[in-house]
Computed example of a mutant assay.
Amino acid sequence: MRIIVGVTGASGSLYAYTLIRTLHQLGIETHVIATKTGEKVLQYECGVNINDMKQFAEVHDDSNLFAPVASGSFKTDGMVIVPCSMNTLGAIANGIGDTLVTRAANVAMKEKRNLIIVPREAPFHLIHLQNMTKLAEANVSIMPASPGFYHQPKEIWELINFIVSRILDALNIDHKLIERWGEKQ
């Protein structure tokens, strides 16, 4: 299995960091693309430099449109953009592929591969919602970073794992990050 993870400049990079580490722990080939602002937010929120991610994944420069992930012939099982800024979401919704993150997302869409967008913004205005609607109509999964509380979390990692587990479920990747409703681990 091969997954691409895009990391953009919205707050919530702990979701990306946890997803990338979990994919690595599950033995899944992972390719990471971070925007310049995504790199800064990852450093600010998690204390993690993008180069630190090389122990878990292959890291691609967002300006390198010659990277393998920019081509439809590079087979993947899906792409997740987490967190996804409204800037990146808008670019993808309007067919703009001028960065590696947006190009890889456009490739996922044209190849009819699983694309999951995890926006971390509040509140949404009308254009945000229209762009999300465009993407949903193009069969892109929109998964806002809004964790549930029915599992009675006591620590922040339980909230992060809730969203990461939903992403893994959408990618059809087995995991044991959370206890499922009605099931005991």
Results as ranks from 00 to 15, higher is better:
residue 2 R to E: 08
residue 5 V to A: 01
residue 5 V to S: 01
residue 5 V to P: 00
residue 14 L to A: 07
residue 14 L to P: 00
residue 14 L to E: 06
residue 15 Y to W: 06
residue 18 T to G: 04
residue 20 I to L: 05
residue 24 H to F: 13
residue 31 H to N: 13
residue 32 V to Y: 03
residue 32 V to M: 04
residue 35 T to G: 06
residue 35 T to I: 07
residue 36 K to V: 10
residue 36 K to H: 13
residue 38 G to Y: 00
residue 40 K to W: 11
residue 45 E to D: 12
residue 45 E to L: 07
residue 45 E to A: 06
residue 47 G to V: 06
residue 49 N to E: 15
residue 50 I to Y: 05
residue 51 N to V: 14
residue 60 H to P: 00
residue 61 D to S: 13
residue 62 D to H: 09
residue 64 N to E: 14
residue 67 A to M: 09
residue 71 S to D: 07
residue 74 F to S: 05
residue 75 K to T: 15
residue 79 M to D: 05
residue 81 I to N: 02
residue 83 P to H: 06
residue 86 M to E: 02
residue 91 A to D: 03
residue 92 I to T: 01
residue 94 N to V: 10
residue 98 D to K: 12
residue 99 T to Q: 05
residue 100 L to Q: 03
residue 105 A to E: 03
residue 106 N to F: 05
residue 108 A to E: 05
residue 110 K to H: 10
residue 116 I to G: 00
residue 118 V to E: 03
residue 118 V to L: 08
residue 119 P to L: 09
residue 120 R to V: 03
residue 123 P to C: 07
residue 127 I to D: 07
residue 128 H to Q: 13
residue 129 L to D: 13
residue 133 T to K: 14
residue 134 K to I: 09
residue 137 E to A: 14
residue 142 I to N: 05
residue 144 P to I: 11
residue 147 P to H: 05
residue 152 Q to A: 15
residue 152 Q to V: 15
residue 152 Q to D: 15
residue 154 K to T: 13
residue 166 R to S: 09
residue 167 I to Q: 04
residue 167 I to E: 01
residue 168 L to S: 01
residue 170 A to L: 13
residue 174 D to C: 09
residue 177 L to I: 12
residue 178 I to S: 00
residue 178 I to V: 14
residue 180 R to A: 10
residue 181 W to A: 15
residue 183 E to G: 08
residue 185 Q to A: 14
residue 185 Q to F: 15
